[in-house]
């Protein structure tokens, strides 16, 4: 009985902790919103973050996107061949990339690359008192540090998703047409016939939401780091785990609403 009660107790505490954390992230989001519309916007910081989140992530995004498209073509081909519908491989790859894999894979890669770096950078700024120094100099850390990162996240993840969609479809085309010898005309025609602009748009809306999630979580974890180098490490890991899970959960609900 005692063991059962302590189980309930621990469960309750875990739920409370998570609800509290979700509330704090939401509060941070509201204060980011209020600082984002208050001039002066820190353009230099925003550009710097856009470069870091966007430009410097292109390589990994291109790599993951290309291979995902290629492997989808390969897998799809074996399935569709069973009922002689190989020409649908192209549209399958294109729909899969634009609706789902483009935004999700891109944001997971950006989480691993940039979301973790946001948590680590803000975390070490916290433990070396650089964030306190901002307060002391009458400058708001949310305005200086967090708003630029979140704007960069929201703006750059959709752009990277466009890149990922494109190279994914190109990878699928290469494998489908040149390796598996699917008829090029049918391959392309089915893509243009079955993929609508809405598939792409909705994928990009998802990507923007994921960009918000990964930057918000990364900044929240970094900003609230406690306890030296170990704390920075913990914040970074927690940021990646929480952001990845949140992206996948949000993906389900966004898909349910939009498609």
């Amino acid at each position: 009985m005692k063991g059962f009660l302590s189980l309930i107790d621990n469960l309750g505490k875990a739920v409370l902790r998570n609800v509290e954390e979700a509330g704090k992230i939401l509060l941070l989001f509201f204060s980011v919103l209020s600082w984002a519309v208050r001039p002066p916007l820190k353009f230099k910081n925003i550009m710097k973050q856009m470069e870091f989140v966007g430009v410097k992530s292109i390589f990994v995004v291109v790599l993951t996107g290309t291979f995902t498209g290629m492997v989808m073509a390969l897998q799809g081909y074996h399935g569709f061949r069973m009922f002689s519908a190989e020409s649908l491989v192209g549209s399958t790859v294109a729909l899969g990339m634009t609706r789902e894999l483009g935004p999700v894979l891109t944001s997971l890669m950006v989480t691993a690359r940039a979301g973790s770096a946001m948590a680590a950078e803000l975390g070490s700024m916290r433990v070396t008192e650089q964030i306190d120094a901002l307060y002391v100099m009458a400058a708001n850390p949310i305005q200086h540090l967090i708003v630029p990162r979140i704007i960069a996240g929201i703006a750059m993840v959709p752009i990277l998703t466009v890149v990922s969609d494109f190279v994914g479809i190109a990878g699928g085309y290469f494998v489908g047409v040149h390796v598996l010898q699917i008829n090029e005309g049918l391959f392309l025609k089915n893509i243009t016939k079955l993929v609508t602009l809405n598939d792409i748009y909705n994928g990009l809306v998802k990507a923007a939401c994921f960009g918000l999630i990964l930057s918000l979580v990364g900044c929240y974890k970094g900003f609230n780091t406690r306890g030296g180098a170990e704390g920075v490490g913990r914040a970074t890991t927690e940021a990646v785990v929480l952001a990845s899970i949140s992206i996948l959960v949000a993906d389900y609900f966004l898909t349910a609403i939009m498609f």
């Binding site: 070396t128 008192e129 306190d132 120094a133 307060y135 002391v136």
Partner: peptide
């Protein structure tokens, strides 16, 4: 706070 300056233990320069 504009009346204040503060020297932090490790300097707290923005790296």
């Amino acid at each position: 706070r504009k009346k204040f300056g503060m020297l932090f233990q490790e300097g707290a320069l923005f790296d």
